[in-house]
Design a protein around this nucleic acid. Sequence first.
DNA 1: ACAGGCTCCTGCAGGC
DNA 2: TGCCTGCAGGAGCCTG
Length: 288
Amino acid sequence: MPELPEVETIARGVDLLLRGDQIVHVRCSDKPEPFKTPPGEMAAALPGRVIGSVHRVGKHIVFTLVAGPDSAASHDVRRRETGEGQVEWVVHLGMTGRLLVTAPEAPVPVHTHCILSLASGRELRFVDPRRFGRLSLLHGAGTAPLFVSPGQEPLLARPEEFRLLFHRHRTSIKAALLNQKLLAGVGNIYADESLFRAGVRPRRAACRLSRKELERLRQSLQQVLRRAIRMGGSSVSDYVDATGERGLFQIEHMVYGRTGKPCRVCGAPIRRIVVAGRGTHYCPHCQR
DNA sequence: ACAGGCTCCTGCAGGC
DNA sequence: TGCCTGCAGGAGCCTG
């Protein structure tokens, strides 16, 4: 399940592979999901545009698409400089979404919902069996961060900002970490892993954590996310990055998916409970 | 306003 | 061996 480190890995990979390539043709499936923007609108707006850059906002992959070299807008200096006429194609992978860069003759997997044919001869395919993912098109430059994820970037949050996110919320710290309006990009795995490293039980009320605990949590979260990005993310189930490589961070999981196994620090069996409707793993001895 | 629960969807694991 | 049930979860929506 792609969270911040996986999405970052994928966005970097796709940026490296596709920056500067031009969209020639778009084909979409006829299912209502995963389209937030009607597929017809997308298929009409994308062709001719050039992939300017690909980056991550929260758990979203944002393609900045600029006018193609032969379009009228590209010759208009004012429109080019203001970003007017620029669009952002936003991909959310949900649980099982994948972006694949392939040759057109490669077999098309089942549950392929969108295929972008590129001027280089390659295809960018969006595949998502469970259809929890979302594809949308935003008009104007730099609109994605606000539209898509109002929450703070966990890697940029400073101590005071981080503390202020939680001090008014009476819900569990686990639910608060998963709330994308507070922090953008944290999902189930890294919530559990950061709470373990901070020594905080997932059911604790967010507003009852001390300054010291919140600062420990902030640092644990940032460490865990940075380390996971360096390792290419966690591969559980079928996650792979744009080039088909699997991440390696799952070998460093301390609690996630380790129910009943001995804690790597103290040896106590890892417990699994349900918090905020999510499977939640913690060490009853190390976390208070 | 906030919190918690339900829903969507498919693949896979486990039980009988 | 095969079928069937239940579980996995991000986020939008509904309710209290």
